[in-house]
Amino acid sequence: MGLFLPQSISRRRLLLGAGLSGAGLLLNGCGTSLGVRQVGNLTEPLNQAIEKLLLSQNAVPEFSASAIEPDKLLINSFNGTPDLDPAQFRLVVDGEVNQPMDFSLADLQSLPQKDMVIRHVCVEGWAAIVQWGGVPLQALAKLVQPKPEARYVFFTSADGYYESWDLASSLHPQTLMVYQKNGQPLSPQNGAPLRLASPIKLGYKQSKWVTQITFMNELTPRLGYWEDRGYEWFAGL
């Protein structure tokens, strides 16, 4: 989810400004101001095309339960942990669908549960092998029936975080809305009552505290919290 705490972002911005005013640091100045957007814009469409090409609807091989690394999954959030009451929780699934629906946590838990032991990879560079349990987004899609024009999925979180995914990745068999981690009920810090989990996207794509899933025909200018600050949108693994 979150990649840096807000304090460290402002520190980075500060350093960024300092780097720009320090005229001697040519390479750094070039990297921070001129270069980044242009360089990204130049090759990101190509990288994204390759990522889409690589994306397969087959399941990514999973790990054994003994490979789970409980200590390695670090907590990231852009704005702390929202205080949510699981009893009051509702997940709204709407947008370009034939049957908009909403689910309580009990509704979701009554659907067939899927478990997976996968590697969660954070954009920061660390990774953790985690067991997740929940409902495939594919199963929810079957219930709400997305219209044929739907090509993207937008995830809204209770803390103001937001994400958008391509439909193929969203309907991947291992893209789950999870309420369980390492055999235990999901903790609030990890995204309870409900979060996204998938082996095929970087961690910041895997929204915590998801309250609304919206199928869309087109992307909006709001691609995602970190994407709108410069990170890649597809972020496929």
Binding site: L3, F4, R12, L16, G19, N28, G31, T32, S33, G35, V36, R37, V39, G40, E44, V123, E124, W226, R229, G230, Y231, E232
Partner: peptide, 9 residues
């Protein structure tokens, strides 16, 4: 790159 996203770009 200035920060992680820039370094990645």
């Amino acid at each position: 790159g200035g920060w992680l996203a820039g370094g990645r770009a």
